[in-house]
């Protein structure tokens, strides 16, 4: 797999991406009183054909990162390179063209489909927005897409309210792949579904990846769903990536104390297995006022023994093993 990464060129490269949402006071005269640092300097490379899993607690900025890559926020600084092209400041027609190549699958299959539209309208919407397409051809293409995601043809004229969560998610997936995008950002696509449906949808995503030659940025809040589908995994904490590594290495040998905590939180189905006690405690600090130094230090079990640096100096993402990056002073060789 590492060989594959070496050979493939990067499809998406994110350089020092920051998304700060301004916070205002509530009086009549608005005054800026701070920033929510939703994404705070993320560097990321996703190669073509890869599935990059992005994991973190809720509120750590993983969804914001995904949406910032899709250019949905104006409050973005840094650089986003897509297919070798800087897309950070694209506007108008150029941005519209970019939309073809990047799509989003939503977490909530209920609010992500317009309740007044039929399945046909929903799936054909992206095609209509980007191509001039005759009625017969449109019908044919929607028919094909429904077939690919496993929806019977007879449902074409129904509305989303008549479908179950899993079926709705299939409609959303059909809509996302309608234009054959290069990159699909999956924003927790299975966390709102039943466990039995989750695996079906994950398998569908895996099949589609092969068939349409897709690249995924797969966002999830737990490591369990990501384990199944990802090649590389990035762990996010408070708007920053704290560990990036191939899947096997991360599960075998998590380096960052936060990743260790996340892995210990995955429930084990074997009752005889002696489980390490929960390594994570406390709450995520406010992204308006992130802790000084390493943002994880208030919850870290090593911070007290590690020395002053954790409290004052922000650790950079560095290679600790080949292909395995971690942002922690424990693995800082220069120290």
């Amino acid at each position: 797999m590492s060989e594959q990464i070496l050979n493939a060129r990067p499809l998406l490269e994110v350089q020092d991406l920051k998304v700060y949402f301004p916070v205002y006071n509530k009086s009549l005269i608005r005054k800026k009183i701070g920033d929510v640092k939703a994404v705070d300097g993320v560097n990321l490379i996703i190669t073509k054909g890869q599935t990059f899993g992005l994991v973190g607690e809720s509120g750590c900025g993983k969804s914001t990162l995904g949406r910032a890559i899709l250019r949905l926020y104006n409050e973005t600084t840094g650089r986003i390179l897509f297919d070798g092209r800087d897309i950070t400041d694209l506007k108008g027609r150029e941005l519209l063209r970019l939309r073809r190549d990047m799509q989003l699958i939503f977490q909530d299959p209920y609010s992500s489909l317009d309740p007044r539209m039929t399945v046909f309208d929903i799936i054909s919407e992206p095609i209509k927005l980007h191509e001039k397409c005759g009625k017969e051809e449109l019908r044919k293409r929607v028919h094909e897409l429904m077939d690919v995601v496993g929806l019977p043809d007879s449902m074409m004229t129904r509305r989303p309210s008549e479908f179950s969560g899993g079926q709705r998610q299939r409609i959303g997936i059909a809509r996302a792949i309608a234009l054959k995008p290069k990159l699909v950002i999956c924003d927790e696509p299975v966390s709102a579904l039943d466990v039995s449906i989750q695996s079906q949808i994950l398998n569908l995503l895996a099949d589609l990846k092969k068939e349409y030659d897709l690249t995924y940025l797969f966002i999830a809040h737990g490591l369990a769903a990501v384990k199944h589908i990802s090649d590389d995994i990035g762990v996010m904490y408070l708007g920053r990536l704290v560990e990036v590594s191939p899947k096997s290495q991360l599960y075998r040998n998590p380096l960052h104390p936060y990743s260790q905590g996340l892995i210990s939180a995955v429930p084990e189905p074997d009752p005889d297995l002696k489980k390490e006690e929960n390594l994570l405690s406390g709450e995520v600090p406010s992204p308006i006022n992130p802790p000084s130094g390493c943002p994880f230090h208030p919850r870290c079990r090593f911070a007290a023994s590690c020395g002053q640096r954790c409290y004052t100096e922000r650790p950079e993402l560095r290679e600790a093993e080949p292909g395995h990056l971690v942002a922690c002073h424990l693995f800082d060789k220069e120290a």
């Binding site: 899709l70 941005l95 939503f106 609010s111 992500s112 317009d114 919407e125 927005l129 809509r175």
Partner: peptide
């Protein structure tokens, strides 16, 4: 605030189309 509006924007619909169609 529903996600289908975000979805329309991701697909490339502009404000006018979002307002009229959704």
């Amino acid at each position: 605030n529903y996600e289908y509006v975000t979805a329309a924007r991701v697909m490339g619909a502009n404000n006018r189309k979002i307002i009229i169609h959704h």
